[in-house]
Nucleic acid binder design. Structure first.
Ligand SMILES: [Mn+2]
Ligand SMILES: [Mn+2]
Ligand SMILES: [Zn+2]
Ligand SMILES: [Zn+2]
Lengths: 143, 143
DNA sequence: GTTGTAATTGATAATCATTTTCAAATATTT
DNA sequence: AAATATTTGAAAATGATTATCAATTACAAC
C-alpha cells in the first residue's frame, strides 16, 4: 500500500521528467504515515518538527504533485484550509464533518451514487467528480 | 416573493437594532432582480454600473446580512469565489456545476435526502447542513 | 425641526491562504 | 567532472475577504 503509492509517485515523477529529491521523499514518507484529512498547515508544522529546513512552499508544491500523481486528493471542508487525503485505487467515499470538534467520518453509499448518475443523465450532464458532505454534530458532540 | 423577502429583511434589520439605509435598499433590490449564483465580484461590478458610489466593503457586508437574515445563502463551488443564491422558504436543492462554461443546474432528490439522514443516524450524527454538488460537463459543453 | 447617539459607509490597510519569483543548490545526463 | 534543467527556501506577490477609522447618516428623544 505504501509501496504501491511510492511506486506510483516515482513513476509519475519519471514520466514527467521531474526529479527525485530528498524533500519529496521526506514529505511523501510523512504524508503516508499520517492520518487522513490533514490540513497543509498541520502537515507543515508536524513535518518541520523533524525537518526544520523544509520550506512552506515546497510542502505546498509537493502536495499538489501528490494530487496530480493520483496518490492524494485535495479536499475543502469550508474552513478555508485545504486538506489532503489518501487516495486508494478503486475506492470512493464521502464525508460527515463535525462542525464542533472537526471529527471526520467517511461513508459510502452505492444507492446515492447511482441516483446521482441518474440525475446527471436526466440533464444530459457528464459527471467528472462530485462532492457530498454532511455537516453537523458527531455522536460525541451532540450529547 | 420579492415583497416577502424585503419584509423578512426589514424585520431582521429592525429586530437586530440595525438601520435601514439607501445602500441596503439598493443592494437588496439588485440582488432580488438577479439570476441565481452570482459571485460577489460580478454582483459588485454590475451594481457599480448604476451606483458608482457604493463601496466594495458595503456589498460584502450587506450580502452577509442577507444570508444571516435568511433570504440568501452563501455557496462555494470551489473556484475561490463566494456566490449567493436566493433562499426560498421550505425549498431545498443541490447543484450540477459545469466546469467548462460555469452553467449551474439545480435538482432535488428526496431519496438521496432520506439516505443521507439514514447514514447520519447510523453514525449517531446530527446533520445541520449538507452539500451535494456534481461537477462535470453540461449537455452543451460535452458535445 | 434640532440634537444626541449609535450604526453605517467608503477608502484603505490588514489578513490569511496560496502562489510566484529568483538566486543558490541539487539531481541527472553526458 | 561538466553541462543542463529542475528544485529549493526565503521572501515578495496575489487575490479574496475582513478590519479599521474618520466622516456621514439614520433615527429616537426632546
Ligand atoms: Mn476521506
Ligand atoms: Mn441553487
Ligand atoms: Zn464532534
Ligand atoms: Zn457547460
Amino acid at each position: 500500500m505504501k509501496r504501491a503509492k511510492k511506486k506510483t509517485f516515482s513513476d509519475f515523477i519519471a514520466q514527467k521528467g521531474l526529479k527525485s529529491t530528498r524533500q519529496r521523499d521526506i514529505i511523501l514518507d510523512f504524508f503516508l504515515s499520517t492520518s487522513e484529512h490533514m490540513s497543509l498547515e498541520e502537515l507543515y508544522l508536524k513535518l518541520r518538527a523533524k525537518h526544520p529546513a523544509i520550506g512552506y512552499a515546497t510542502v505546498y508544491r509537493t502536495l499538489k504533485l501528490f494530487a496530480e500523481s493520483g496518490i492524494a486528493r485535495e479536499i475543502q471542508f469550508g474552513d478555508g484550509q485545504t486538506r489532503y487525503e489518501h487516495v486508494t485505487e478503486g475506492e470512493h467515499h464521502d464525508h460527515l464533518v463535525c462542525t464542533r470538534c472537526g471529527a471526520i467520518a467517511e461513508f459510502e453509499n452505492a444507492t446515492i451514487e447511482k441516483l446521482q448518475d441518474e440525475i446527471a443523465d436526466s440533464y444530459g450532464f457528464l459527471i467528472k467528480t462530485h462532492k457530498l458532505e454532511l455537516y453537523g454534530l458527531c455522536a460525541k458532540c451532540r450529547k
